[in-house]
Amino acid sequence: MTTTTTTATDPAGEDYTSGEGLRALLNRLHDAGSGAWEHDPVAAELMSYAAEKYAPLARKHGLDPWEAVSAAFDVMRTRAAREADDPWGVVTHAVRITCIAEERGQGLLCSVHQARRPHVSCFHDPERLSERENTLSDYHPAFHVTDPHHHDNEPDADVGESASVTGAVEDAILLFMLLGWPEGTARPAIEHVCEALARIGSRTGTYEALRRDRHARALLDVPAASWTVLLRVLLGRATPGYGATGEGRGILLRLLIGEGLPVLLGDDGLVATISHTAPHTRRRGA
């Protein structure tokens, strides 16, 4: 019994699936002149075979298979492919590099030629600011504000009792009570924020964690608008440009660095913000 094996050959018997067969075909097309690739039927079959061969590689990099064929066509016409010990190996390597460059070029919004250069391809793909849930200032280190007293281990002697954590918390509670917040609301809410701050260790991280904590807000019985204001004035703004201001530092830090209640009560903007969002004031105006 005779077994026959089917190979990708043209009617003339050229087997371009093997290295030797591909070399012979490339040499013949090269010797035939400039119009051979356009009119030779075997060349068309070779391109169809290349499209099927490199389709998985193209899909891996998010490309159309014929984009990989275009890269294969470019390298097949070179002297390096015709004279290589493994022509298909040379073609495959070139197609892989081109697919990677095509993918990087699309991601970096630049040409493939630029994407091949290491000093360009080392960058990450551009991102729209709207693609992230948090604002740019929340995660980019260039916009982080360092508390000037963050690394102080010992309280300053001039600060006295008001510089202690307990004293700062009590002064913050008293400030809210003086500006119309009920003690039953202000005390548990502020103590909850301080406990979270001690656990998380970052004012920005604490703000981001608590502003989404609807369960805690419901247990504390604080309206959404009042809760947002309480977090912002206690912890301060992380927005660039506010770091050295009272609004950027927040009430807790201002108390810790020696600003007492009289100073805070003299801040008209702070007083208006806290008093206008007092929970009982909102209910009375509803």
Rank of each mutant, 00 (worst) to 15 (best):
24 A>T: 13
266 G>Y: 09
5 T>R: 15
36 A>K: 09
74 D>P: 12
173 I>H: 04
187 R>E: 15
248 G>E: 03
189 A>M: 12
192 H>D: 06
197 L>K: 02
41 P>H: 01
204 T>P: 01
254 R>M: 11
268 D>S: 08
148 P>M: 00
81 A>S: 14
213 D>M: 07
76 M>T: 08
143 F>I: 00
92 T>C: 00
263 V>G: 09
169 V>R: 01
105 G>F: 05
101 A>D: 10
263 V>N: 02
146 T>Q: 05
240 P>A: 02
63 L>A: 15
237 R>K: 11
149 H>L: 10
280 H>Q: 15
30 H>R: 01
33 G>V: 07
174 L>G: 01
275 S>E: 15
96 R>W: 05
116 R>C: 14
123 F>Q: 10
228 T>I: 04
68 A>W: 04
52 E>K: 08
255 L>F: 12
115 A>I: 00
1 M>L: 14
152 D>W: 06
83 E>A: 12
110 C>V: 12
39 H>R: 05
98 T>D: 15
27 N>E: 14
93 H>C: 03
113 H>D: 13
5 T>D: 09
40 D>L: 00
204 T>I: 12
190 I>M: 05
207 Y>M: 12
135 T>G: 13
283 R>T: 07
254 R>N: 14
237 R>A: 10
182 P>D: 09
225 A>L: 07
152 D>Y: 03
69 V>S: 01
